Amino acid sequence: MNQDKIEQGKKLAARKAVDDNVKNNMIIGIGSGSTVVYAVERIAELVKEKDLNLKCIPTSFQSYQLIVKNELNLVYLDQYPVIDLDIDGADEIDKDLNLIKGGGGCLVQEKVIASNSNKVIIIADFRKNSKNLGEKWKKGVPIEVIPLSYVPLMKRFEKMGGKPQLRMAKAKAGPLITDNGNFIIDVDFGIIKNPEELNKKLLMIPGVVDTGLFIQIAS
């Protein structure tokens, strides 16, 4: 399937997700990534067509820009700690609807918003589906870490059987810096048959802020 057809499919899926789930007076979490762009564009159309009263919470600087660009009502989690609907994408989805997210570097805020949402909609094309995490997404599990801890953490991840790599920035020298001022280490653990157990082990390590393993968030 060529890229144009894939993009068209993503756009149609995003529009349907919005049409089927967005209602008046909702608080909506806006995720990050290319598919979410189509969802936000459709939300903006509905606001104008139906005069909807919606409040949108960003999960990243990218989604903040999308909300502002599309002239949607920008609010924040400290104002509205209970979210009606979160719309986001994913890098990989397994048979139990566990996710790998964070390829775009926004995993922590995305997980915070998702965990405080009554409903989470994940929009993804067929390329993201797999039986087990790690089958198709070969870049590893994104793990956000405190900068001073990255060297010992990389050694720790190696002892756990992973292949860690500090994510580097593309338009500047040095590592990528997250919206929270942290580093991201991408760790290839191979095929992940028990993502919940791996996630728990990683979160117990001092210096780990959070992981790109989203467990039992989607339904």
Rank of each mutant, 00 (worst) to 15 (best):
212 G>K: 07
145 V>F: 04
204 M>A: 15
153 L>S: 04
67 I>G: 05
173 A>M: 14
204 M>W: 14
28 I>M: 05
160 M>D: 06
216 Q>K: 15
174 G>S: 10
137 W>S: 10
60 S>C: 05
132 N>I: 03
184 I>Y: 02
218 A>S: 13
8 Q>M: 13
80 Y>Q: 07
194 N>F: 05
177 I>E: 13
96 D>I: 06
117 S>P: 00
10 K>C: 01
52 L>R: 00
16 K>I: 12
1 M>D: 10
124 A>G: 09
156 R>G: 01
118 N>E: 12
206 P>E: 15
192 I>R: 03
169 A>D: 15
36 V>F: 07
2 N>F: 08
26 M>R: 00
162 G>I: 09
163 K>A: 13
194 N>I: 03
68 V>Y: 11
32 S>E: 08
94 D>I: 00
36 V>R: 07
190 G>I: 11
127 R>A: 12
35 T>G: 08
96 D>G: 02
55 K>F: 02
48 K>T: 10
101 K>W: 12
93 I>H: 00
173 A>T: 14
204 M>G: 08
126 F>V: 15
201 K>T: 04
194 N>R: 12
47 V>K: 14
70 N>C: 01
97 L>H: 07
179 D>G: 05
86 D>N: 15
100 I>K: 08
73 N>C: 06
162 G>T: 07
154 M>T: 04
57 I>S: 04
190 G>Q: 03
30 I>C: 13
38 Y>L: 09
101 K>Q: 10
192 I>H: 05
87 I>V: 13
217 I>R: 09
110 E>N: 09
45 E>M: 04
11 K>I: 10
109 Q>F: 11
188 D>Y: 08
198 L>W: 11
210 D>L: 08
99 L>V: 03
207 G>A: 11
36 V>D: 11
82 V>P: 01
142 P>K: 06
45 E>S: 12
80 Y>P: 00
